[in-house]
Nucleic acid binder design. Structure first.
Lengths: 192, 192
DNA sequence: CGCCGAGTTGAACTGAATCAAGAAACGTGG
DNA sequence: CCACGTTTCTTGATTCAGTTCAACTCGGCG
């Protein structure tokens, strides 16, 4: 259940098995079935979650009822609404399983305690968040500079196989176009 | 020269004066005059910079020659192209002073050493980057959901006084529209 | 079998970009 | 302190990418 987390942490910092065993005690394993929600808008985001297996998405619903996907959470990724998790305020995001998933959950109090007992993890999380920030800045700038078609092909090369795991209308709502537009882009691409 | 940095760090972590005095030795003060560049695209981003005074912007230029602003760096903010700074690869960003500015620069080797000698700063940077990530995710989602007009009024309320310090075409390139569009939005707003 | 969600296609519409031209503000040198 | 060029801002006409609305197909599933 904890293999992926251990691998991921060992990729960035040096941590003893003993320390990791201690870290494990702060997490709560949870299985979440496809189409079930870990977080619904209006509720506070109580958990930050590590995806050991499966696939999640975090998304918002705007005034017109359209979904906008912030993140796909694949194996080895962390998913949460950070702002709500840190402040305890109601979240504007939903987090839903797109496949039957195995998660490791941690609450804010546990996370605080984990970091104070194993300060070496500050570094792990700093680097994790740092990489996430770089990727998000990149996505932001690309949304301003490149066309929807380029964003689509970029997504496919960044997450190979995603189009087999995620319905197209969700891919559309990740790259920021309607399902109709993505459908048209795809037919253009396939006719050269 | 270091007052703002010390304040900012003390806002998030507990650090002794002694430790801060040691930290100071890793930074290089620099004055950068208006319209001068700290980083030009094609060069690696050698420094991460803390703005003690003044105003910077980081921006990209796309294929058509249009500028897109990633960040305004006001007093108390950190500015860099993180990816290039961490990897040493050529940057696609420019960093320019919009006002005569006083900066504190730190190189990658110094930063690594600083963090290993004062690991308490891991926490400071983790929280700093965390807040930056939240803000960037927010901006990304808002670019997908709300209109250019709302983004403009949001910007004005988030950075009061920015329209006095930054020319309008740069505000346009921050919110992701052309100068012409922003001009028209503004005239609509002022005629109710 | 009928229903429902997912995807496609068409036609009309719209917000913003582009192209173009002119007005206002700014700053630098004489 | 004025004159000149440069940068910034505005306004208009046209074009275009993407949305919206609507109808239809396809495949899975109770």
């Amino acid at each position: 259940m904890f293999e992926f987390l251990q691998n991921k942490i060992n990729d960035t910092i040096i941590i003893s098995d003993q320390e990791f065993e201690h870290a494990k005690t702060f997490f709560m394993p949870k299985k979440l079935r496809r189409k079930r929600f870990l977080l619904q808008e209006g509720d506070p985001c109580v958990y930050t979650c590590f995806v050991e297996k499966g696939l999640l998405r975090s998304f918002r619903i705007d005034d017109k009822g359209n979904e906008h996907i912030l993140q796909f959470g694949m194996q080895g990724w962390w998913v949460a609404d950070l702002y709500s998790f840190l402040t305890g305020e109601a979240s504007e995001y939903n987090i839903e399983a797109l496949e039957d998933s195995e998660l490791l959950l941690i609450t804010k109090p546990s996370w605080d305690q984990l970091l104070s007992e194993l300060p070496v993890l500050e570094r792990y999380f700093r680097i994790l968040i740092q990489n996430n920030l770089i990727a998000t800045q990149n996505r932001l700038m690309r949304n301003m500079t490149i066309t929807a078609e380029q964003r689509y092909t970029n997504l496919l090369s960044e997450f190979p196989g995603i189009s087999q795991r995620v319905p197209q209308h969700m891919i559309a709502s990740y790259i920021g176009v309607t399902r109709e537009t993505l459908s048209r882009l795809r037919s253009q691409i396939s006719h050269q």
